[in-house]
Design a protein around this nucleic acid. Structure first.
Length: 263
DNA sequence: TTCCATGTTCCGCA
DNA sequence: TTGCGGAACATGGA
């Protein structure tokens, strides 16, 4: 589930596997995965270079390829990364590979084709073009900024937190988790929040994202009192034992506890 | 077979 | 003009 914690986990995985190796070539297995950069250009930009370092902005992962710029990976809803020996059998739904001269390759897979592979020579320009707000864990997103930005909007909390042009990185699953921890109903209007609510929401956003990164976004390793392990029909609230409710809010299915998260 | 799914983008409307 | 909510997109999985 590629939201901020998942993408951060991919980034660390890439760092521990695919950095500082010479790129022999690249393969685009399905052109529909490409963003603005053509198959040929992508190959030309990457071949002979090494991935030197990585960074992340919201749900976008960037890997610096020599002095030419950055490989851009977005994972859509079903994207994944895998690094393995070239001789190993192909990963299912593999769409793009970076092949290294040491006979290993980095495989980008994406079942539903909603992700994107791209290249950019400037991270700032890229973020602007994508209309990305600051990353949720960026220092800029402090309580003061958060509370000011919240007050300038008038939408549901759900739609606020999932809007990538306001704050980048939070999607459907982790926004539910944040509202659960903050004991706020996802359908509350931003204008209705009291000062204490805003602070709690802000703190829970950090708590949830950091904890999720800690456990490598693995649901099995999430704390038992998180909503995530109980995010399914008929589940019980880990807090009060009540029944978890599913409702469409801002166009997405939202799970919450109607007892703990009042509107 | 039908419904649903963690992503973004586009369109109509207030 | 801006910004919100819903539909559409692609591809299976339950």
């Amino acid at each position: 589930m590629p939201e901020l914690p998942d993408v951060e986990t991919f980034r660390r995985y890439l760092n521990s596997t695919a950095l500082h190796k010479k790129i022999a070539g690249t393969h685009v297995l399905d052109e529909r995965i490409l963003g603005e950069t053509s198959r040929n250009s992508l190959g030309r930009f990457l071949k002979g270079e090494e991935l030197e370092e990585t960074t992340r902005h919201g749900k976008f992962l960037f890997a610096k390829a020599g002095s030419r710029g950055w490989l851009v990976l977005h994972f859509g809803m079903t994207g994944e990364l895998k690094y393995q020996k070239t001789s190993k059998e192909e990963v299912e739904y593999a769409r793009f590979t970076v092949d290294f001269t040491d006979d290993h390759r980095l495989i980008y897979s994406c079942r539903r084709m909603l992700g994107k592979v791209d290249f950019t020579d400037n991270l700032k320009d890229f973020a602007e073009k994508q209309e990305l707000g600051p990353d949720a864990l960026d220092d800029k997103v402090n309580l003061e900024w958060f509370s000011k930005t919240l007050s300038e909007r008038n939408s549901t909390l759900k739609s606020f937190l999932m809007n990538q042009s306001i704050i980048a990185g939070i999607g459907n699953v982790y926004s539910d988790e944040i509202f659960f921890r903050a004991e706020l109903h996802p359908g509350i209007k931003t204008s209705k929040l009291k000062k204490g609510d805003v602070e709690r929401l802000y703190n829970c956003m950090h708590e949830v994202l950091e904890k999720a990164i800690d456990v490598q976004a693995d649901v099995e390793r999430m704390p038992e009192d998180f909503l995530l392990p109980h995010r399914e029909p008929e589940a019980r609230c880990p807090n009060c034992g009540g029944k978890i409710k599913k409702e469409t809010i801002a166009g997405r299915s939202s799970y919450f506890c109607p007892k703990c998260q009042k509107k």
